[in-house]
Write a protein that binds this DNA or RNA. Structure first.
Length: 1137
RNA sequence: GCCGGGGUGGCGAAAUUGGUAGACGCGUUCGACUUAAGAUCGAAUGUCCGAAAGGAUCUGUGGGUUCGAUUCCCACCCCCGGCACCA
């Protein structure tokens, strides 16, 4: 072929492939053959690309996302895999709705028109998508199953409603998505956006936080994506610690306690009850601890009746139930109608239906039908205490009880299993007023001198409400809290870097380690939604330190610095033991000027003041004076003061190995300039100079000296980890050793996450209606499966209603519905689902896109899941990938899918930027439209160029620059011309190059390095042009290598000789015997510099190579002695002279 | 601040158990063909010195290990992405 008419060729073959359904993935998928299954090889390959949003027009980025992975799809197919390469449209979302509002269009019409247009464009790329599997999320046949899956999660208890702040535009009277808020203002009307609380649907992704982190490990994903997900989830391990509160005002209403004992220790004289009673009474509380009737054979009705008859229960009562007493307490609550203060269940008895729970005789008489919702309304606060020593099934069971009561389970270790100890501090703590704090630094607990609460902290809300009167500065606190709540999160962060806060006067917290009183503060730098919304503050945190200094709150140091000196070979060798030493650090002031004595230890360039060892029982001050004299010669140093506590340094010394040195930092001033001669050895080792404060500051390069130096000028804060002192039994431990120990002793070990639950409510029209019904009688009821899908109703206009509800609230007829439970009047939910829900399972639908009975058939899913390779943009690294992983895990737990992870391998491709280097967007006006280029040069050229610009599997960004595209076009034209050289007989000289190319192109495609695969194809063609001839078999092998890149042109050239499509051909294999050339080039180096090269036979041995090399550079070697010769066969010879 | 990725010609880039740095392509220059332009073909092309032969030098900067470092180690600088008052 002489002329390359890309238009005709592409039109012809696209039509032909479509007509013959060339890329339809076999419906009845091949399972792995027995032999291949044994090797762990699958014949099916699910190659997934992120499906596009139908914005209306394809840009270069789409080509990059779809046409480049197509190369891999085609290659794998030729290599015998059954490849599914599906496509669809993520068709719900905001742009359609905005277009609808703007142009008074139906969003469905707008979307469908775009889909039709974009489908044509995608087809023009020559991709091998299987269109018969197309999935469109706004199709009721699809979203029926989105709704159904959502309901499965709801039924599993993963869905709940919660008051959540949303962006509210007061002028448009509508909820705004984050992307509609620009600099805190409404995108449309420019008015100030405010935060407003609304009931929103949430999904408990946080329940899966641990698994979402832990299951990342084995996945074949790039490290940066895994790290980014871990970072986003933000797990930190720490401890929750309770700080009891004490009040100045003693006149408020007091709780009273009713303690119900368990069964085994059959009375109120058993277990912890006498101790607890005494402890509470000592604090002035009234306590009732009745003996329940028939303890040896307890009966529910009798025990409950006894409690109701003999005990006083009022609104101040807190009922404490231990073991069976916990179950009794629940039944007591069923019988009373007035609210009580609290309910504390201590390891309550288990429902016998729980798997693994043993049947007890009294359960015959016990009715386990407990109305937790009613109890929740009756009780102001509740708590469930769990002893972790008990393990399963009690611990998971108590978790569900706590969940039903709407509280977090309090886990810890009782002093005896099941709280049978005589003294159980965990229980007492839960009964007294207290603040719970989360910390990752329990090691500083002994030094905690104040607490800081977030303005949103529930205890703060109680303390400033009308019913309570515990604060002596209530008005001041109230004003601060209200001001803080008005600020948005953004303002809080950016407003003023200076932290503000107000003390809560009239109340003190007690440090559980020391019993010391700690003031309470409220400050808006503490985040209400993280941890417990409260922190304890100490001297070893920069923020706490600064805040305490600002408000003059006392601090207490409990950490001595521990520093590891140096790096590299001089660093502390962590695996080897260390020798302990005592030493001094001395900072020496000039006798008359504001200057300091700077000493540099020359051999290692350590720079600071004077330092040296303390000999035996020597006094540190005397030792320091001795060292000053020895190192510097100055004779009259006067001791000024100690510079804080000791500083511990770990470092490595050539002489002694690992050292752990405990330095005493000291400040001296010279009395005069008297200076003796110093020893020659010292002179050689030390440089001495006088530096000003600023110079000295820049001079110091050892960390311990820097800490000592900082104390000369009074900065006391040591932020970081260190060694504990003034911390009771934990003295002398390092922070890392102490953190778990202190946490376990004074609190309980817990994990916290930055990840928040997934808010899936959208007050939007163009989305999947949330299939829920609100019944005034029955509450929130799920739409029955038989009524799915809940179709989107038609509405007149798509503007939100103005009440904060979605436009669906305008569809009156649609809104009214019978309650599926009671048949009474009810209303539909008007929120729609976040579109991330749609995209959390679309790849499952690809496996069985037309199924009317199920979201997908299990067997068909098994053929294709998990996804073998998922290619997409870096922008989906956290949100989409995390949400869909979570969704898949939830379905896995429900038994609906067979894998816990949806994607075996993930790669992020780079971004094609606009020609100006900016991100492509309509507002920038820099959207590169490839249509013209395709028109001029052809689809094959454009897709191949995109594959050529750089490695595909690296997150890089390329400004769209079509300058180089002509190179690819020239290459394809040369391929056309090369077809003229084809002879029947093979050209032997081309064989090594051809086989090398087969090898490299295959390897590079597998590694997603399409750019170097193409360069190898070019190298081969260059070789062909040099020979000006080519064998028919060689030509066809080359065409097959090229066919994934240029499917149209290669098909055309192939069909010059063949009847069937090149795209059903086998991938060529290389012959290792043909890889080697007869002779190879060896580089000759002298002292590592290349001086010449020499041709040697490929099979030459070391001696032969060396001989040849020596002969080649004989002239250069003349008169020089060769000290050493290094021969690297196949590469080089290096003569060292 | 924390986490991650990166820094190589005029440009996109290549090179990994440490072994000829700059493959392949774009661009540029010269030549052939042409009345001419374009297309095509051939040659050259990191930088500096040199007419040339040749020499020096070069993978962000500085240091180290090595016969030999883009590659390994240490320190630092810069760019990009993510998270960020997270206790």
């Amino acid at each position: 072929m002489k002329k390359y008419d890309h238009k005709a060729i592409e039109r012809k073959w696209q039509a032909r492939w479509k007509k013959t359904s060339l890329y339809k993935t076999p419906d009845k998928a091949k399972g792995p053959s027995a032999a291949k299954a044994k090797e762990g090889k699958k014949e099916n390959f699910h190659l997934l690309v992120e499906f596009p949003y139908p914005s209306g027009n394809l840009h270069v980025g789409h080509w990059y996302a779809f046409a480049v992975p197509d190369i891999l799809a085609r290659t794998l197919r030729m290599q015998g895999k059954n490849v599914m390469y599906p496509i669809g449209f993520d068709a719900f979302g905001l742009p359609a709705e905005n277009a609808a509002i703007k142009n008074k269009l139906n969003p469905r019409t707008w979307t469908e028109k775009n889909i039709a247009y974009m489908t044509k464009q995608i087809e023009s790329m020559g991709t091998s998508f299987d269109w018969s599997r197309k999935v469109v999320t706004c199709d009721p046949a699809y979203y029926k199953w989105t709704q159904w899956l959502f309901l499965q999660l709801f039924k599993k208890g993963l869905v709940y409603r919660k008051e959540t702040a949303v962006n509210w535009c007061p002028k448009d009277k509508t909820v705004l998505a984050n992307e509609q808020v620009v600099n805190g203002k409404c995108e449309r009307c420019d008015s100030e956006v405010v935060q407003r609380n609304m009931l929103q649907w949430n999904i408990k992704i946080t329940d899966y936080a641990d698994r979402l982190i832990d299951d990342l490990e084995p996945l074949d994903w790039p490290k940066e994506i895994k790290d980014s997900q871990r970072n986003w989830i933000g797990r930190s391990e720490g401890a929750e610690i309770n700080f009891p509160l004490e009040f100045e005002k003693k006149n408020g209403p007091k709780p009273n306690y009713l303690i119900l004992h368990g069964w085994y220790k059959d009375s109120a004289a058993g277990a912890f009850i006498p101790w607890l009673k005494k402890a509470l009474e000592e604090k002035g509380f009234e306590v009732q601890a009745p003996n329940l009737p028939n303890p040896e054979n307890p009966k529910e009705i009798k025990q409950v009746a006894d409690v109701l008859n003999t005990c006083t229960i009022d609104e101040h009562t807190i009922i404490v139930g231990h073991s069976l007493g916990g179950a009794v307490a629940l039944k007591v609550l069923e019988k009373i109608n007035r609210p009580i203060a609290g309910l504390v269940l201590v390891a309550p008895a288990m429902n016998p239906s729980v798997q693994g729970a043993k049947k007890r005789p009294f359960w015959k008489h016990f009715n386990w039908d407990i109305d937790y919702e009613r109890i929740k309304k009756l009780v102001r606060f509740s708590a469930v205490l769990c002893d972790l020593q008990e393990g399963a099934p009690r611990v998971p069971y108590l978790k569900t009880v706590a969940q039903k009561l709407g509280v977090a389970l309090i886990e810890g270790n009782a002093s005896e299993e099941h709280f049978f100890g005589k003294e159980e501090p965990m229980i007492l703590m839960s009964l007294l007023p207290h603040i719970t704090v989360f910390t990752t630094r329990a090691d500083t607990l002994f030094g905690g001198t104040y607490l800081v609460l977030a303005p949103e902290h529930p205890w703060v809300a109680l303390a400033i409400d009308d019913k309570h009167d515990v604060l002596t500065n209530k008005a001041e606190v109230k004003a601060y809290v209200e001001k803080a709540k008005k600020k948005t999160e953004l303002e809080r962060q950016t407003d003023d870097k200076e932290k503000t806060g107000v003390e809560l006067k009239g109340v003190k917290a007690i440090n559980p380690t020391t019993g010391a009183e700690m003031p309470l503060w409220v400050a808006d730098f503490v985040i209400g939604s993280y941890g417990t919304g409260a922190v304890f503050a100490d001297a070893h945190d920069e923020r706490d330190y600064a805040f305490a200094k600002k408000y003059d709150i006392p601090l207490k140091e409990t950490l001595e610095p521990v520093v590891v000196q140096g790096a590299g070979p001089d660093a502390f060798h962590t695996k080897e033991p260390a020798i302990d030493r005592s030493s001094i650090l001395a900072i020496v002031k000039h006798w008359s000027e504001e200057k300091y004595l700077a000493v540099r230890f020359k051999p290692t360039d350590v720079r600071g003041g004077v330092s040296g060892g303390v000999d035996g029982a020597e006094d540190p001050i005397a030792a320091a004076k001795r060292e000053i004299a020895e190192e510097t010669g100055y004779e009259h140093a006067r001791f000024i003061r100690k510079l804080g506590g000791p500083i511990h340094s770990k470092y490595y010394s050539q002489k002694y190995g690992n050292l752990f040195v405990h330095f005493t930092p000291l400040l001296f001033q010279l009395e005069d300039e008297a200076r003796a001669e110093i020893s020659p050895k010292e002179k050689e080792e030390h440089d001495i100079s006088w530096l000003t404060k600023e110079e000295f500051d820049a001079f110091i390069n050892r960390e311990d000296m820097r800490i000592a130096w900082s104390r000369v000028h009074g900065e006391m804060c040591y932020a970081g980890k260190g060694m504990l002192f003034d911390s009771g039994e934990f003295n002398g431990l390092t922070s890392d050793e102490a953190i778990p120990k202190v946490g376990a002793k004074f609190g309980r070990v817990v994990k916290q996450y930055h990840l928040r639950d997934w808010i899936i409510s959208r007050q939007r029209y163009w989305g999947v209606p949330i299939p829920m019904i609100h019944c005034p009688k029955c509450g929130v009821v799920a739409v029955p499966d038989k009524d799915l899908p809940v179709k989107l109703p038609e509405v007149k206009d798509y503007l939100p209603e103005g009440t904060g509800k979605s436009p669906l609230a305008k569809a009156r007829k649609w809104l009214d519905i019978q309650c599926p439970v009671c048949g009474g009047k009810a209303e539909r939910e008007t929120d729609t689902l976040d579109t991330f829900v749609d995209s959390s399972w679309y790849f499952l639908r690809y496996t069985d896109p037309k199924n009317k009975k199920k979201f997908a058939d299990a067997k068909k899913m098994a053929n294709w899941m998990p996804v073998d390779l998922y290619s997409g943009g870096a922008e989906h690294t956290t949100m989409h990938l995390l949400y869909s992983r979570f969704w898949h895990k939830a379905l896995f737990d429900l038994g609906l899918v067979k894998d816990a992870e949806p994607y075996l391998r993930r790669m992020n491709h780079g971004v094609i930027l606009g020609p100006d280097g900016q991100k492509m967007s309509k507002s920038h006006g820099n959207v590169a439209d490839p249509d013209k280029l395709v028109e001029q040069l052809g689809a094959d050229t454009v897709r191949m160029y995109l594959a050529f610009i750089g490695p595909y599997n690296e997150v890089a960004s390329y400004p769209w620059n079509p300058d180089g595209v002509v190179g690819i076009r020239r290459f394809l034209e040369r391929v056309c011309r090369a077809s003229e050289y084809v002879n029947p007989a093979s050209v032997a000289a081309l064989d090594p190059l051809l086989h090398k190319s087969i090898k490299k192109v295959g390897e590079d495609i597998a590694a997603l390095k399409f750019n170097t695969a193409i360069s190898q194809l070019m190298i081969f063609l260059n070789g062909v042009e040099k020979e000006k001839k080519l064998g028919k078999t060689q030509w066809e092998q080359f065409l097959r290598l090229l066919s994934p890149f240029a499917p149209h042109l290669t098909e055309e050239l192939w069909r010059e000789r063949r009847k069937t499509s090149i795209h059903v051909e086998q991938w060529p294999t290389f012959d290792p015997a043909k890889l080697v050339n007869e002779s190879i080039t060896i580089a000759i180096q002298i002292n590592g510099k290349v001086r010449a090269d020499v041709q040697v036979p490929a099979d030459a041995d070391k001696e032969a190579i060396e001989k040849a090399a020596r002969a080649t550079v004989a002239a250069r070697l003349e008169g020089k002695e060769i000290l050493r010769t290094i021969v690297v066969p196949g590469r080089l010879v290096n003569f060292v002279v």
